[in-house]
Design a protein around this nucleic acid. Structure first.
Lengths: 151, 151
DNA sequence: GTGTGAGTTGAAGTGGACTTCAACTCAAGG
DNA sequence: CCTTGAGTTGAAGTCCACTTCAACTCACAC
């Protein structure tokens, strides 16, 4: 019924701690009006923003990137469903990628469950005398994480 | 050919920075022998341990938990393929869970792509006048992350 | 032998995402 | 009014997973 929420209410309804909400505000992810007594009052629309933040985090997006995304929302009006849909869709490929990676990991784990090679380097670890010493392309860790660290 | 690896070699072959390898050693995740000149020499078996560590991280397991898992390996002998298989399998349900969560998120995002509700609280956010104010069980954030934060 | 690149250490720094603290002020019920 | 629970602030602290630094020492090709 209230058309604005206290920080406690927003916290309860979003599942995000008040301290985190203040933190988000400092980073410019959400905003609040103030009462005469300087207390935060959140518009209901902020609930959606917080929801978007949490979902985005699940997808593995940093708060910095989330802020950038939120900044692309129209300032003049309350974001429409389409605005939110556009933003959500923008994470879609990352979500897909993440799911793909984990699924592959699961399959690899399954496939190599008997050999114990952990499916790394296409079972080359399982080579008795390590034929793959310093060769070119194939192999190495499956995971693309450490973009640096040579070879 | 060498039956032991320098830290640089292990780094290159595992894709993990030397500083990270030393860090892992401090945490007790891997171990190294020392040369007369106090340099680390890693047994080839450590390559598998590092591989296991990186895979486990992908699954979302903390280094602490990974250490616990690694501690369950037999100390007397070089871990067998079966040992590794057992450990890998132990993350399986977490991997499944993580994939399930992300897939659901993706589906929800797809399903609600038009309504802009972000699929939170089963579209209750989309209620014009917010019928879900402080009610009992259902709803709230889909994500089980903040186990505390009341209500 | 000498230079060079690889390795060593402990301590400190980083970055991300928050939480905690102390010392207050506000808001609302009795 | 007064109490009590909720809210306010800036600064500092925490946790995780590392990285960086300075000041050295090693290993090895020439």
């Amino acid at each position: 019924m209230p058309d604005s929420l206290t920080i406690g209410e927003l916290s309860a309804r979003s599942g995000v701690a008040p301290s985190a909400l203040r933190y988000y505000e400092r980073l410019g992810l959400i905003r609040a009006d103030r009462t005469g007594g300087n207390q935060r009052r959140y518009a209901r629309a902020e609930l959606r923003r917080v929801a978007f933040i949490r979902i985005s985090q699940q997808v593995g997006v940093s708060l910095d990137e989330i802020r950038d995304a939120l900044d692309s929302l129209p300032e003049a009006r309350t974001p429409s469903p389409q605005d939110w849909a556009r933003l959500s869709a923008s994470w879609r490929s990352r979500l897909d990628e993440r799911i793909r990676l984990l699924s592959r990991l699961r399959d690899d784990l399954d496939g190599c469950i008997g050999c114990g090679c952990l499916s790394l380097q296409r079972c080359t670890l399982n080579n008795p005398e390590d034929t793959l010493a310093g060769e070119g392309p194939g192999a190495r860790l499956v995971l693309p994480r450490p973009a640096d660290s040579l070879n």
